[in-house]
Nucleic acid binder design. Structure first.
Lengths: 136, 136
DNA sequence: ATCCTACGATAGACAGAGTTCAAGTCAAGA
DNA sequence: TCTTGACTTGAACTCTGTCTATCGTAGGAT
């Protein structure tokens, strides 16, 4: 994530303090914040940042492929900055904690042609569910 | 789904016209309706059924394991009555159409112990995405 | 260094999905 | 048939996200 701001500048992004703060909040391993959580953390550094700006910036980061949108329940979407290393997710059924995981094997190869119903399949998401150590 | 009403009665469910209609609407292959769609179809048969009852009934069916809740996007949850035959989902990225699919292989076996972070993993959901024949 | 202006930020209204609650209704056992 | 507690209703409410009109400013032009 360190060179994210460089990449964005290279893509013609106008660099504002709001965008910088949102990008900084979304840094680290196993980070899966909701838009409201991002807003809360951004507010600590930049008290007057608005909700709309957080949503706009997150949407742009997703469009640019720098952040992945994750929906593990019917509630708020979560934003995963680990977009450049392919991975799947392990979710605690109790507390909702999310970890990035890297299973072996290729689920795409496991879907036979006759099970594709004529679709052009391009992507697979795998979500493992169970109890985390604290909730078990 | 035909014997669903029998099973529910056996579990002590009080049988009301509302519950019967919701269960009847959720019948068939590749059925993935939203709560609002269920309500719309239920209303055709029972005009005065309320939204709250549809939500309540769907929630009960999910708790009883008779229906699976599917969240393929950040929008409304969908309800899948095909709960007794394990399967995964293939979703059109364009129009949102959903098909039940049966991949080979066991994704659970593909998650090494060191990638489980101490979780007790019990379930896996796989979502394939791509374009359906109409949208391609 | 200052000016311009198009792009970005803001607040608040709005919309979609789902939940809650108090009051009324009814399935089914006695 | 009576009774009762489970079920239903509709309206208000919460949560998540989007839209819009207006204001502000980053960064190139001068």
């Amino acid at each position: 994530m360190s060179d994210l701001l460089e990449r964005l500048r290279g893509r013609g992004w106008r660099m504002t303090s709001q965008r910088r703060v949102v990008a900084e909040v979304l840094d680290g391993e196993h980070v899966h914040l909701t838009a409201d959580e991002v807003h809360a953390r951004a507010t600590r550094r930049l008290p007057e940042i608005s909700r709309a700006t957080v949503y706009n910036t997150l949407g742009e980061l997703v469009s640019l492929g720098e952040v992945i949108e994750v929906t593990t329940d019917g509630r708020a979407k979560r934003y995963d900055p680990n977009a450049h290393r392919p991975h799947h997710h392990l979710v605690c059924s109790d507390c909702g904690t999310i970890r990035d995981v890297h299973p072996t094997g290729d689920p795409l190869a496991d879907l036979p042609a006759e099970e594709r119903f004529g679709f052009t399949v391009s992507q697979v998401e795998v979500t493992y569910r169970g109890l985390c150590p604290s909730c078990a």
